[in-house]
Design a binder for these strands. Structure first.
Lengths: 116, 116
DNA sequence: GTAGTTGGTATACTCTGTGATACTGATTAC
DNA sequence: GTAATCAGTATCACAGAGTATACCAACTAC
């Protein structure tokens, strides 16, 4: 075959793409990462910043993301108990993806509005 | 409130992000777009280029994407019938997102391998 | 004649991501 | 005394995304 190298690169790239989709797939992970990276720290604060999310989904996703070292959860056991979520450096590696997606969403909205 | 503007921008951005997730959500849309943008045109060709996909899912997604003007489907009715899929300019607006995700996937793989 | 390719469709099934609702115990505010 | 906030947990239920497998008709290759 003439271009084995090209073919192999494509294969690698699909797999990289699929890995990424596996990690950040679903409706909520990216919005949550985005919210925390924007400085939201408290549970209800994050919840309010993401339209449509329920406490249940937020709770589940936060747990999973804490396990995967995407975020840090700190409890300040004074009374009343205070819980804070923070992004980790690892979490910030999604910035490019999130920015590209926000950009696309904005352009898409323009496009739709012009059509109508 | 001191920073109404900041808050409003954040709200806009979450929504843009959520819109984008809505459009390209799921396991297969981005890999398919990627494959077609890479020059794969024939059904079986696209199928083979995406590990794990089934004919059924590919068929469904292609139909949906054709309806949404993301791709163009052309039938050449010579015998044997030939079908070709092509990307549209609109489809190419996802390039940045896909590139960012491929990049992340590659970095992630390195990261995992270094840890092990 | 047999196997393989192409571009799919049909059927049946699983499963899990997501949603809706209610609730807790501690604290603060009116 | 009542309501609200905080950080969640507990149940129940469901649609639809995704999987598995078989099959079709037309054609080519050996």
């Amino acid at each position: 075959m003439a271009n084995t190298a090209l073919v192999r690169n494509q294969t690698e790239e699909v797999k990289a793409l699929q890995d990424t989709i596996y990690v950040i797939g679903g409706k909520w992970k990216l919005p949550i990462i985005n919210s925390i990276c924007n400085g939201n720290k408290r549970f209800r604060e994050i919840e309010r910043s993401i339209p449509g999310i329920t406490t249940r989904m937020l709770s589940r996703e936060l747990k999973e993301m804490e396990m995967n070292k995407l975020i840090k959860r700190t409890v300040y056991p004074d009374s009343p108990v205070l819980v804070e979520y923070e992004s980790t450096p690892y979490c910030k590696t999604f910035a490019n993806i999130i920015l590209a997606m926000i950009e696309w969403g904005k352009e898409h909205k323009k496009y739709i509005q012009e059509e109508a």
